[in-house]
Design a protein around this nucleic acid. Sequence first.
DNA 1: GATGAATGAGCTTTCATTCAT
DNA 2: GATGAATGAAAGCTCATTCAT
Lengths: 192, 192, 192, 192
Amino acid sequence: MKRKKILEAAAIVFSKKGFHQARMDEIAALANVAKGTLYYNFSSKSMLFSATVTEGLETIVKQITEKLNSNLPFIEHFRLLIEYMISLYLKNNRLAKILLNELSSGIDSKVLAEIESVQERFIIFIADLLHKGQKRGYIKPVDIRTAAIAVAGQIDSLCKYHLRNPGKISKEQIVESLFDILSTGLLKPNLP
Amino acid sequence: MKRKKILEAAAIVFSKKGFHQARMDEIAALANVAKGTLYYNFSSKSMLFSATVTEGLETIVKQITEKLNSNLPFIEHFRLLIEYMISLYLKNNRLAKILLNELSSGIDSKVLAEIESVQERFIIFIADLLHKGQKRGYIKPVDIRTAAIAVAGQIDSLCKYHLRNPGKISKEQIVESLFDILSTGLLKPNLP
Amino acid sequence: MKRKKILEAAAIVFSKKGFHQARMDEIAALANVAKGTLYYNFSSKSMLFSATVTEGLETIVKQITEKLNSNLPFIEHFRLLIEYMISLYLKNNRLAKILLNELSSGIDSKVLAEIESVQERFIIFIADLLHKGQKRGYIKPVDIRTAAIAVAGQIDSLCKYHLRNPGKISKEQIVESLFDILSTGLLKPNLP
Amino acid sequence: MKRKKILEAAAIVFSKKGFHQARMDEIAALANVAKGTLYYNFSSKSMLFSATVTEGLETIVKQITEKLNSNLPFIEHFRLLIEYMISLYLKNNRLAKILLNELSSGIDSKVLAEIESVQERFIIFIADLLHKGQKRGYIKPVDIRTAAIAVAGQIDSLCKYHLRNPGKISKEQIVESLFDILSTGLLKPNLP
DNA sequence: GATGAATGAGCTTTCATTCAT
DNA sequence: GATGAATGAAAGCTCATTCAT
């Protein structure tokens, strides 16, 4: 029905403009729906935003989890994770942007908390994957949560750059660099 | 005179609220200046934003450069860079946030280009530092620009997390983790 | 069937909120009926209001008339009238408020005329009772219509005050004061 | 300046339409002022309403008090009070209507309290006058507050009727009837 | 007969910008 | 140079009304 059309339009507009710059008029027009219909389905702009983000994360996490149920050696697993998260970001970047960025002031504190919890769930999801690798002896004894945040930050900034400057870095380059840096770091081995 | 007071107030308000949520009223009040005075000194909100960001970067770059003119061994240099950028972010996070984030639509395209170029200059600044390390044989032959972006992304996401969840990660932890990951990566050495 | 449920709900909501503040949603919910059903039974909000008021007055007038068909001495009759109108107002204050107050602009002029005529009928009803007393020699030769309006006004303001400030004046006090003032006035007799 | 023009326009519109039906657009147009100017001078519709009522009462009370500083015999004083309140109502009926009527739900509770306190002050003002008469032996030992409310109610309903049905009752008739009823009541003296 | 999802005109409010002083 | 009262376009939201089922 119209609810789904609205959520799709909302994801597009919110991710392009951010919460405050997004206009209900624009979302309505894009969803091909009257403005009142937005409010018939969602009680406010904040609630629409919240729904957009929440329902979006479910989709993403489900997609990643499905892909990673393989039984590859860990390194391959690790590379796949990076590759897949980047693919998802670029394909789905509307939501990713929101997930990793939008925390402007001025949103209902209730909704703000909802968004923060969604972000937290995403970080936890990455941390879980890293944790498994650590238990199996593949990952150094770093703080897992910190590492997860760092990974998310790198993905975000590289993908944003890619999207902002089309052509300057290819997707493959991003995956390669990220995998390289995350695997063995930036420094040459055997330094004094 | 008033111009300086305005820029200081603008930096505080813009970084706390972002471009669109910042209100000229608030900036004027904080600068202890009449609203008309903002327009006497800057032709529009966009231009004030542009000036704030540009003049802010100069300060930051100058501060970092001064600190890094030492003749330490590269590894120490590298650690210092990370440590100092994080300190600056946390101290000065107002501007850092803008530098690393704000790219909302709705800004005059002229000003948008200005902001993008400021961001680019910051990336280049990091890339330059990495490049020197590479030439001197300390850094692996990765793509320097990609690495710079990744470094900026990690700093951004870790610092944001730190600010959002006071107490969960200490500043020292951030520096240590970042240095560790960036130096030698996440994976244990000597894996098959 | 549903029509009656709607009218009951409408009386409650209209008298609590007044015409303009009452919402069709609320009436429908209270009547346990879909919003469309309101429009199936009444062509518009104005017509629903009109029906609510008109059918309400009939009930009230019928109730008062029944009570007053006694053959008491006029003074008792008069006191009873006052007492009963106040009881009705307080019990039924939903409609009374409308009858005595609601004349906001913005109602269809047709409906407005209907309401005015209902109010007029109520004033006439009181005037009739006074007129009978006058014919039988109990009431001074004042203008009957004016007196009726004054009586209605006193009842209205005292009851409103009673409802607004629970506990400050009891119902008995209202009846007593009103009866006293209306009977013999405020001034002491035998004044120069 | 514009503040005064706005208050005048607001009094006209609020009293004609009531709080909820009054439109900020209409007030702005009547005051010959841009809509934004309303909000430059008053923080919200509710606050504008509050200011209109409060500042209006001051004027009215001042006017009545001035008139009543005479040293006439009490009966004349009493008649003058009635006559003057009615004149004021009819002349100034915009505010009087608000003072005696407007208590719709949906106003900020803060403002609602303000209005109620203004109404209370008006009742107290009448009660004071009656009290003086009582102390000097002119008024029967009725409950003063109740009497004041009854007086206000009569004035309100008679004046409303007068305004609604131009020509049916003259102003003099209203004064005469009210004075008569309030002085000696409706009943003939010397009844069994 | 009855429903409720959908509508859109119209409302209050915000805020960058202007301009007379 | 500096002010701040005034502006008006544009936003979020409400709600009587309609109509396909």
